[in-house]
Nucleic acid binder design. Structure first.
Length: 580
RNA sequence: GCGCCCGUAGCUCAGCAGGAUAGAGCACAGGUUUCCUAAACCUGGGGUCACAGGUUCGAAUCCUGUCGGGCGCGCCA
């Protein structure tokens, strides 16, 4: 039950009735109307801007229209009072019966509380991580990985039909380098002294296992072949094993993609050829010259003709090359084919989670989707994640790529645990830089938001356990009398719970899972406050053996809070802690 | 030169779908425990929402411009 969309519905109904009576125009655009909790609780439970938004199209003064709408709402069973305030806000005070009904429905929904059909089954593809299969994931991949995963879960919970996808960049020069690096490790595994890894090859120890596997499978056969024959073998094996490594790393963070899509397969199936000639037939491709970028001109710039996609016709800043000077396709060409494949699979929205250094991709991805599917057919949503700065006790953690000293995703997860990583990665807006201090995130204090939220959940579980030993066993929400919840701290929590479904919807529409993390922090804060209030005022304690009905009610209330908290944590991919 | 992101309290950041008097944590000062986890809570000061215009009944939020910071700009993926 979403109280706010319920109230929005009543407002819309009131407008329909007024239109039927000829008091306002019919067919007004109601899309900009909101029903939301007012910032100041003294204004009531729900506030709507309907009169202000519709005043002009209705040809009425805001307050006059507000009077008309208010007249229709007055007397409804769920509404205790209607008032008009300020420039034309309509403030609703809900009747006493609404909150108990809400809490009962929350408890009935349980683990599904907060879910909605907002997305109406729209097919959404969320592509995230998509790191090159040339080694283990490093810490820089953490944020996009967690963000994409939480976003996918959020969209799923709000009624979108989501596919979680990973694009494997297994074509091109970088995986050739990988294949050569693996070949070297293969010779090493056969007993050869390979000395220093030459510059230009991947030095990481993680390729030793690939070399050993190749040696076990092929003996010294490959050494007798020319490169064009052994490279496909070592490359394929290395990619395979690197992808296993990456899948393991992701699993350690509780991330599981549904589709792993191979770039190479697009070339081998001819999909790239097909999509390029398709664009050619539509006239979106031409041969021409690009102007060098202004400002710093690259030293090796060489003016030349190339095959270009007319991206500027679809809002991009420059046209994008499809073929390299050796006539092979560019990475961008396979990207086009990949977009086409996603579109052909029926996705109406393509979400890309990328690093902030990929900001330049946004327009070209949108341009491609428009050129392939037509204007407005497919939404392209690109979410950029800023860098994570690692600290240890306030000191920056230095990483040297040259020396191969980089902190892997696995290092971080092994040290602090997946829940801490996930929560912290989501406790900032994605486009804001994020500081991650190993010491702070494992601290057991309120300075550490992960702990603070988990502690609140554990405290609730603790009360429920204690209640069992006090003779309060099963909790039937229908025997609780929620009208007994009268304290302001209790009501604040009830209102906070009621905001959860709306929060999920707005977070989903904005593609901003971090809002859930902040919501959980606030919910925890209000719970801790209520808990401590019980120290000063024993009447507010949860377990009062002498007052059976009140205790049952409060236990049911706690269970409701617990659902909201657990559901939010689960959505972010954390396991709610029952005991600390 | 062009494009994208960011600019909110001393610090780190929220600000929900344009709403009413802009919030939280840290830091600083003080207080709370015979009692469900004090691993917590309460009280207090602190703001030209970078700046200037515009749209609107209403702007931290949308648009334009300026300043400041980050990222990117053909034949890498």
């Amino acid at each position: 039950m979403n109280l706010f969309s319920h109230m929005l519905g009543l407002v819309a109904k009131a407008l329909d009735e007024l239109a039927a009576e000829g008091k306002v125009a019919s067919g007004l655009d109601v899309s900009r109307i909101t029903a939301e909790p007012p910032r100041d609780p003294s204004h009531g439970d729900v506030s709507t801007n309907a009169a202000m938004v519709l005043a002009k199209p209705a040809g009425l003064a805001p307050r006059a229209l507000a009077e008309l709408i208010a007249g229709k709402l007055t007397g409804h069973a769920d509404i205790a009072a209607v008032s008009i305030a300020g420039p034309g806000f309509i403030n609703l005070k809900l009747s006493d019966a609404v909150w108990p009904k809400f809490l009962v429905s929350l408890l009935e929904q349980g683990a599904r509380f907060g879910e909605s059909r907002l997305g109406a089954g729209k097919k959404v593809n969320v592509e995230y991580v998509s790191a090159n299969p040339t080694g283990p994931l490093h810490v820089g991949h953490c944020r996009g990985a967690v963000f994409g995963d939480a976003l996918a879960a959020l969209l799923t919970a709000t009624g979108f039909d989501v596919t979680k996808e990973y694009y494997i960049n297994d074509a091109g020069a970088q995986v050739d380098v990988l294949g050569r690096s693996a070949f070297l490790r293969y010779r090493e595994a056969l007993g050869e002294d390979i000395g220093e890894i030459p510059a230009g090859l991947y030095p990481g120890d993680y390729l030793k296992a690939v070399g050993q596997a190749l040696a076990a499978a092929h003996g010294d056969k490959l050494t007798k072949l020319p490169e064009e024959q052994w490279l496909p073998v070592t490359r394929a094996k290395a990619i395979d094993m690197m992808m296993d490594l990456i899948r393991d790393d992701l699993a350690a963070l509780n991330i599981r993609h549904e589709v792993f899509f191979s770039e190479r397969s697009l070339h081998e199936s001819g999909a790239v050829d097909r999509v390029v000639s398709g664009l050619e037939n539509k006239g979106h491709i031409y041969v021409g010259r690009l102007a060098p970028p202004k400002g710093e001109v690259p030293e090796d710039w060489e003016d030349r003709e190339q095959t270009l996609f007319r991206a500027t016709a679809f809002g991009d800043d420059v046209d994008r090359p499809l073929k390299k000077s050796d006539e092979s396709f560019t990475y961008f060409a396979s990207d086009v084919a990949y977009s086409a494949d996603k579109i052909s699979r029926g996705f109406r929205e393509l979400v890309y989670v990328l690093g902030a250094d990929h900001g330049g991709y946004v327009k070209r991805l949108q341009a491609v989707a428009t050129a392939l599917a037509g204007e407005g057919k497919v939404d392209v949503v690109v979410r950029l994640c800023q860098l994570v700065k690692l600290f240890r006790n306030g000191e920056p953690v230095r990483m040297s790529k040259r020396a191969g000293e980089f902190v892997t995703l696995r290092d971080v997860v092994d040290e602090v645990g997946p829940d801490v990583v996930r929560f912290m990665m989501l406790h900032r807006k994605n486009e804001a830089p994020l500081d991650f201090d190993f010491a702070k995130v494992t601290e057991q204090s309120k300075d550490n938001p992960v702990f603070y939220v988990q502690y609140a959940h554990a405290r609730i579980c603790s009360v429920l356990r204690n209640a069992g030993t006090e003779g309060f066993d099963g909790i039937d929400p229908h025997t609780a009398d929620f009208s007994l919840l009268q304290d302001e701290a209790e009501m604040a929590l009830v209102r906070r719970l009621a905001a959860y479904p709306r929060l999920l919807e707005s977070a989903a529409l904005a593609h901003e899972p971090h809002r859930i993390s902040f919501y959980l922090f606030e919910l925890a804060s209000e719970f801790h406050a209520l808990w401590n209030k019980g120290k000063e005022a024993p009447q507010l304690r949860f377990i009062l053996p002498a007052q059976r009905l009140l205790t049952i009610t409060r236990l049911a209330f706690l269970t409701a809070i617990r659902y909201s908290m657990a559901n939010g944590l689960n959505l972010l991919g954390l396991t709610p802690v029952e005991e600390m």
